[in-house]
């Protein structure tokens, strides 16, 4: 394990710090959205500040939940289902 790897090890150990920095960045970005905004909304709603933040979050949550919890149980089979492994 070379120096770069050791660096990442140390960073991984401090993941809580990174997580908190991440949340701060999220808040800052939402704040900026009130200041910087588009003049030509694509969807009409995106002129409201926080639209893309909410869009990203909701769509992400919905997508993962629907796919993993609803769709995958329906279409998942064992790995060798077709017999060609």
């Amino acid at each position: 394990m070379n120096g770069l790897g050791a660096l990442f090890e140390r960073l991984k150990a401090q993941y809580k710090v990174w997580r908190n920095i991440f949340f701060v960045i999220l808040a800052v970005l939402v704040g900026l959205n009130f200041v910087i905004n588009t003049h030509e909304p694509h969807f009409g709603l995106d002129k409201y500040p926080g639209f893309f933040a909410g869009f990203g979050l909701i769509i992400g949550l919905v997508m993962v939940l629907v796919m993993k919890k609803i769709v995958q149980p329906l279409i998942a089979r064992k790995e060798d289902f077709y017999g060609d492994i």
């Binding site: 933040a53 998942a76 064992k78």
Partner: peptide
């Protein structure tokens, strides 16, 4: 904005999105 909040969605659901060894039809 889009990317970081998508990241947040991942963070919230990180246990759910764990991959399993399955074949999806």
């Amino acid at each position: 904005l889009l990317l970081s909040f998508s990241g947040l969605a991942f963070y919230v659901l990180r246990e759910v999105i764990t991959p399993h060894a399955k074949l999806n039809l």
